[in-house]
């Protein structure tokens, strides 16, 4: 009984320490720098190298539960795309994706007041059916999106005059947290129509998607979690929300490493005691 309660107390101490480790750097930022990984650089390169006035798809395939990780990525990549004068077709494979998109746009558009709806960006809305919808976009975009969110017909949106299928899209950027998401874009857009795909995902999902960043270029880079979002911010010279939060992330990781070491030493000592007895 006493062993159980002691472990409970230990757990509570760990939670409290973690809370302090995350909260303090938010209040008193440390300004630690993060090194840019190759995966983030590849994603940045794709947007950077796309020609002026290219039409890109930004697919918001997530909901508020993964906002902390994906919203900073969306904002940074959108900022980059607008700075390169790309035209952005906004859509979502998740029902709440468009709400996330509108939040990101309202923030970034404040920086680019000259961007006009229909010419520089268009909200095409949520599309049900995931991979089937993407496949259909490869055949006829206007059929999948007969009108935008405000009811304007596809043919009447100036930025989409020359966009008939996915082949007319310079690159696709999927910000995804699960299915449907990046994987479906790779399978149905990149591997079938050769449209370059990049994106960002939550840290939990990143290891499952990294194999697609390969010599076959199934994915052009990948942003995984808050760290990658902060890397992207540093690539576009912006001190954004991810950069600020990375201090907390780093301190928490140091604490967790320390706690893992302490836990292992305790376990070793307990095992040694067991052997001696």
């Amino acid at each position: 009984m006493s062993a159980v309660s002691s472990s409970q107390v230990e757990r509570r101490i760990v939670f409290l320490l973690l809370l302090i480790a995350v909260a303090l750097p938010l209040i008193f930022p440390l300004g630690w720098k993060t090194e840019v990984s190759n995966y983030s650089k590849l994603a940045w390169n794709l947007i950077q190298s796309a020609p002026d006035s290219s039409v890109a798809i930004f697919s918001f395939d997530y909901d508020p539960s993964s906002m902390t990780e994906l919203q900073p990525m969306a904002e940074a990549m959108l900022d980059h795309a607008f700075s390169r004068n790309h035209r952005v077709l906004v859509m979502a494979l998740w029902p709440q994706g468009m709400q996330m998109a509108e939040q990101a746009f309202s923030k970034i558009l404040a920086k680019y007041p000259d961007k006009r709806y229909g010419i520089d960006y268009a909200y095409m809305g949520y599309k049900v059916a995931g991979i089937v919808a993407i496949q259909s976009m490869g055949k006829n975009m206007a059929e999948v999106f007969p009108a935008d969110l405000s009811g304007t017909k596809y043919q009447d949106i100036p930025m989409l005059h020359d966009v008939k299928t996915l082949k007319d899209i310079a690159y696709i950027n999927s910000l995804s947290t699960g299915v449907p998401g990046i994987k479906e874009w790779v399978m149905a857009a990149r591997d079938v129509y050769q449209t370059p795909v990049t994106g960002g995902t939550t840290a939990v999902s990143a290891p499952g998607l990294i194999p697609y960043v390969n010599s076959q270029q199934q994915l052009f880079g990948l942003l995984g979690g808050l760290k990658a979002a902060s890397e992207y911010e540093s690539l576009i010279d912006v001190i954004g929300p991810a950069t600020v939060k990375m201090d907390s992330q780093s301190v928490a990781h140091i604490l967790i490493l320390f706690l893992i070491a302490v836990g292992n030493i305790k376990a070793l000592r307990a095992r040694k005691r067991g052997h001696n007895e």
Partner: peptide, 18 residues
């Protein structure tokens, strides 16, 4: 990566509170 994701969730909530 999983640890990073979970800490991010905590950061999100603490950011909301603070």
């Amino acid at each position: 990566y999983t640890v990073m994701a979970r800490i991010s969730l905590l950061i999100g909530r603490l950011e909301f509170l603070l």
